[in-house]
Nucleic acid binder design. Sequence first.
RNA 1: GCCGAAGUGGCGGAAUUGGCAGACGCGCACGACUCAAAAUCGUGUUCCCUACGGGAAUGAGGGUUCGAUUCCCUCCUUCGGCACCA
Length: 858
Amino acid sequence: MPKAVVPVEKKPKAIQAAAQTGKNEKDKSFNPQVFEKKWQEKWEADKLYRAVIDHSKPKFYALTMLPYPSGDLHMGHWFPMTPSDARARFMRMKGYNVLFPMGFDAFGLPAENAAIKSGIHPMVRTRDNIVRMRAQLRSMGAMFDWDREAVSCEPEYYKWTEWFFIQLYKMGLAYRKMSPVDFCPNCNTTLAREQVWGDDRHCERCGTPVIKKDLDQWFFKTTQYADELLRFDELDWPERVKTLQTNWIDRSEGASVIFKTETGSHDVEIFTTRPDTLWGATFMVFSPEHPLVDEITTPENKAAVEEYKAQAARQSDIQRGAVDKEKTGVYTGGFAINPVNQARIPIWIADYVLMSYGTGAIMAVPAHDERDFAFAKKYDLPIVEVIRPEASPPSPLPMGEGRRGEGGELQEAYIGAGVMVNSGQFNDTKVNTEKGRKNPGISAVIDWLEQKGIGKESVNYRYRDWLISRQRYWGAPIPMIHCEVHGWNPVPEDQLPVLLPEDVEWKPTGESPLKLHPTWKNTTCPVCGEPATRETDTMDTFMCSSWYHLRYLSPHYDKGPFDPAEYDYWMPVDTYTGGIEHATMHLLYTRFFHKAMRDAGVVKGNEPMMQLRNQGMVLGEDGEKMSKSRGNVIAPDVLVKKYGADTVRAYMMFFARWEMGAPWDSQGIEGTARWMRRTWTLFTDQTPPGSVSDQTKRTLRRRVHQTLRKVTHDFENFEFNTIISSLMELMNEMYKARDAGAAGAPEWSEAQDYYLRMLAPVAPHIAEELWTNHLGKPYSIHQQQWPQFDETAAKEDVIELPVQINGKVRDRITVPAEAGEDEIKSAALASEIVQKYLEGREPKKVIVAKGRLVSLVV
RNA sequence: GCCGAAGUGGCGGAAUUGGCAGACGCGCACGACUCAAAAUCGUGUUCCCUACGGGAAUGAGGGUUCGAUUCCCUCCUUCGGCACCA
C-alpha cells in the first residue's frame, strides 16, 4: 500500500533537517533518552505522584517487594516492579487514590561482609548504595511516592522494629530458649528453619550446608498462630503460595497418649495419628536425645546405648534424615506398659525418631506403619495385626496393601481401610483412610482414651517457632537487658532506639561483633538499676520486612510505628507483588506479625495483604539463573541507555507470561523497540486527511473500543503480555486507517486519544511526550481518567461464522451480528460449498452456536 | 514416596463460558528503497502430501461431546516444595 507522501515544507523542523541530510528522519527525531529525563524531572518537580489522603476517592495500596540495597538494580527488580507500576498507574487512571511506595530492606549480611573485607562501615556503604539505586529506580519512570520512602537500617525505622519486639515480648510471644539450632558456618549466624533449604539443608542466602549448634536464642511463638495461618479465606492469594504455606505448617491430627515406664513409672507422652492401632503397639522407640533414655537404660545395655547416642550425635541431620537409609537402633533394656491392654513392651532408641517432632518418643505399630515394620523385621520384634481389610481374608493382596507370606504372616505394613481386630471391645469397629475425627475408628478410640484419662485428641505441626537471633552486627538490636538478679527485661520504651554503636570491629567469629565491643553491652537493669548487659545478637532482617508496609504510611512519624490516620485510610495493602521464593519466609512472617499485632491492639483486620501475585523469573539467555559467575547477566541500565526506559518497561510486560518468567531474548526486545518507534512515527508524521469511508471510520472506532475492553480486562488480571499485543494490534489498525485517509476524522482523534491513554501506564514517557507536545493536550496524561468504554462502538455489525460438517470447517458464512438462529441456519444451508458436501442429504442435526459457528451433522 | 505447577510452530507466547488452533512479537525467507549495508516499508512463514485441493497436529493414549488446547481417566517428561513428621 502506498504511503502518504508528506511535502517537505510541512514537516517539523527536525524532520526537515533530517530529510535534507538524507538520514533516517524517524531515528533522528525519536530520542527517548532526552524526553524521558525531561519528564521524570518535571513529574518530580510537580510532585505528580505524591499520595495524599483524600477521602473523596477510593484508596488503593499497591505494594511491590522492596529491594536490598546491593548497589545495582538488575532484571530481578525491573521484572516485578515495572508491570506492578503499570498496574498502579492503571488503577490511578481508573479513579483510585493510589499509594505505590518504595524503600530499602537495608540491614543484612552483604554490607557487613563488605565491611569485614574493606573496612567500609556498613552504614556508609548502604547509604551510598541507596543513593545509587534511588537514581536507578527513578530511571524506570515509576510512580513511586519518594516522600514515603522507608529505610530499615535508619534509627528512625529500627527504633520501631525494636518497639515491635518489645510488644511481642510483652504478649509472651518472644522467648529465649537453649536448643539445637541451624547455624550457617559461612554467614556465621543462626538461621530460622524457613531459611534452611533443600535436600542438603543449605543456607537460603549463601548455599552453604548448615550445621547444628546448641545455643541460647530468641524465638517468636509463630506456632501459636499455626491454625490461623492455615486459614486463607479472606485472601486472594495464588493457590501455590497457600499450598506451600499449608505444607510448611503441616498440621496433623491425632491423639496424645500416656505410656508409663516400668522403671521409675514415668509418664511418657507420645503423639500418634493412628490411635486406632494402639493395641498393635508392640514396642516403643525413643529418640536418642530423649531425656528419659539414661534412666530407663539397664546396666547391661548401657554401653551399647551410649555408643549409639554418640554415633547419632555425630551424624548430621542430612545423614540421619536420608529416607533410604536402613533403620538402626538399640534396645535400652527398659519396658513400658501399653495403657490400652497393659502389655509390657520393650523400649528401644533409634535415630528415625526425631526429638524435634512430637514428643521425641513413639509407640511402634509394626503391622500398620512401614517404618516400624522395617524396624521390627530387622530386630525381630513382635508384629500384631489390629486392622484387617474387611472383605478379603486369605486372598493375596496387591502390593502395598499388606502382602502376606505363605504362612499368612504380613510381608509389609497394612495401611489401608478395614476393621479393628485384636483390640478388645473395639473389635469390628470400621476404620477408613481418613485422618483424625473423620475416621470412625480413630474417633471412637479418642473418645474412649479421653474418658479413661489416658489420652486426648491432639494436633501436631511441623511448623516451628521463628528463631530471630542473629550473631551479626548489621541488624536491629534485640532490645533486651540481662541482669544477674532480675533476668531478662526489655529496654524501657522511652529509651528506644537502642542504637548500634559505630565503632565496631567486624570479625566473622560466629558471635555478634556487639559482644566484642568494649562498652556497648554495659548498661543498667531497668528493674533494679544495677549494672546489667545488653543482648548482643541482632534480629533477623525478616523482622524488619514484616512491617515495612506500615512504615511507608508515615516514614518519619515519631509517636508510633505509623500514623493511625494514615493507617486507617490506606491499610490493608490491596495488591502485593513479588517473588514466590518468599512463600514460607517473608509472606508467612508478615502474616504472623500482623495477627500478633492485631491481638496487641496495634493494627486492625486479620491480614496485611489482601491480594498477592507472584511474578516468575527472568533467566539468562542460556536459560540459567542470571549470575555474575555464569556471565549471563543482562544489565537494565545498558538497555535503558540503548532503547529508553519505555521500551524496557514494555518488554518486561511483553516477553513472557508474568507469573512464569522466561529466559532473556536480546533480539526480542527489538520488537518492543520497533513498536515504540512506530508509535512515535504514527503520531509525529503529519498525514493529510483524505476522503475516508464511513466503513473505515466505523471499523477504527470498533477496534479502539474492543482494545479498551481487552486492555482493561488484562490489567485487572495481571495479564500484561496481552496488553502489549493488543496495543500493537491497535497501532497496526491505526496505520491502516490512516493510509485509508482517516486522519482528521473525529474517530481518528478518539483513536489517538484512547491509544495514548492506554499506553500511558505502560510507557509513561512517550505517552506524555506525544500527548502534551504533539497532540497539544493538557499536561499531564497521568492525571487523565482511563478512557470510557462504549459497548455499542465495540459491537460487530457483521460476523463471519465457520460452518462445520461432521466437525470439519468447510465454509465460512457472513451474517449480521444480530442474526437469529433460523437466519444463520438458512444462510449456512444456502452455501454452495455446504451443499456440495451434503451431497443432497438432509443434515441430521444443525447446531447454531450464536456468534461462534454452525455445526452440521450428516 | 507425598503435594503443587507446567508441557501448543524454529523461539517467547495467544485462544473471556467447550466453538475458526497458532493472535502479537522474535527469528527466517523473498521483495521495495540503497552503489552497498544497516535501518525502514511490504509480502510470506505449524507440519505433511505429485499441492487452485486434501490430510495431520496443542507431551502420549483413552473417554464424554455435533465439536476438546479447554472437561474426565491413565501414563510420560520438566520444574518447584516437603520428606524416617510418628
